[in-house]
């Protein structure tokens, strides 16, 4: 049994660029020779600043875009095999940034049912899938509400339930928390953690919040269409200089540790959370 969920080899993609008169001026190379793989059950965060190509990569995984060069396999299927496109899209569900623009129906449960309805699932099976998906994201009691009256975090959880009802093996989230307030962000992140831990769903999380990326198993940094850094969050964030050179931040605590080390205090470089920082500082104090 193959354990790879997503594998890309030499993936390249470009948009043509037009000037004001509509003449082709050149090409904007969005992805350059991206080779990476994501294991089943893994939680991978993809980091990169605006225009780095991270969203374009996400759209390839959902077969909304197709590779120009190179190949992308999702659950063992080449995304270019057109007859299996619906299988790819249902096994790799996608969540977008704006929760309003991805909810289709005006009742929560009808929206969650949209995916399985499109797949032609039996009505009774849809019912049980919808109930289960809404319970997983803790939105069961909102089943008959109007999505317009929910908070941003709740809307995004409904969108996640909508993808879950298609029984995906993998969920791709394209900056799902960018338009949410801190409490909405926490709701979505806790939901993701539950999905990854309890349901063993592979998560491909595109973000530019470093604190969110720190919760992943692995971080991949994309810059100008190339995968430039890869490793556990600690490994990646410890390279503070490299991250800054790429125009990215590191979690606050990592930055603090970096500054402390620069001033000659002996503290680990791979601290990412407040708890770790407290522990390290206490240990330091007991040593002196």
């Amino acid at each position: 049994m193959n354990n790879t969920m997503v594998r890309s080899e030499g993936l390249s993609f470009s948009y043509p660029v037009y000037d004001d008169e509509g003449n082709k001026q050149g090409v904007n190379q969005v992805l350059k020779n991206v080779t990476l793989s994501v294991q089943k059950g893994e939680w991978v965060a993809i980091l990169g600043h605006n225009g780095s190509g991270k969203s374009t990569f996400a759209r390839h995984v959902n077969a909304l875009l197709f590779p120009e060069e190179g190949t992308l396999w999702v659950n063992g299927i080449d995304t270019r095999s057109e007859e299996q496109i619906w299988e790819i899209r249902s096994s790799a569900g996608m969540i977008f940034q704006n929760p309003d623009n991805q909810i289709i129906a005006s009742i929560v449960e009808e929206d969650v049912a949209f995916g399985p309805e499109n797949l032609g699932v039996e009505p009774s099976e849809i019912r049980s899938r919808v109930d289960a998906a809404l319970s997983t994201v803790n939105m069961r009691k909102y089943a008959d509400r109007d999505p317009n009256r929910l908070s941003g975090g709740q809307k995004q959880r409904v969108a996640i339930a909508g993808v879950l009802a298609m029984k995906p093996a993998c969920i791709i989230l394209d900056e799902p928390t960018a338009m949410l307030d801190p409490s909405g962000r926490r709701e979505v992140m806790d939901t993701l953690e539950r999905l990854n831990h309890d349901e063993h769903i592979t998560i491909l999380h595109i973000t530019h919040y470093m604190e969110e990326a720190a919760r992943a198993d692995r971080v991949i940094v994309i810059d100008h269409g190339e995968a430039v850094l890869e490793g556990t969050p600690k490994e990646v964030f410890a390279q503070v200089d490299r991250m800054k050179a790429l125009g990215l931040d590191v979690p606050q605590m990592t930055e603090l540790a970096y500054d402390l080390r620069k001033s000659g205090i002996d503290i680990p470089a791979d601290i990412t959370t407040v708890e770790e920082m407290v522990e390290a500082l206490c240990r330091l104090k007991s040593k002196t």
Partner: peptide, 20 residues
């Protein structure tokens, strides 16, 4: 954006679609 989201959720019109 809505059209992309619908496509991502396997919407392909009426064919083979069931209702809850």
């Amino acid at each position: 954006e809505l059209a992309t989201a619908m496509e991502a959720r396997c919407y392909r019109g009426d064919s083979g679609r069931t209702r809850m």
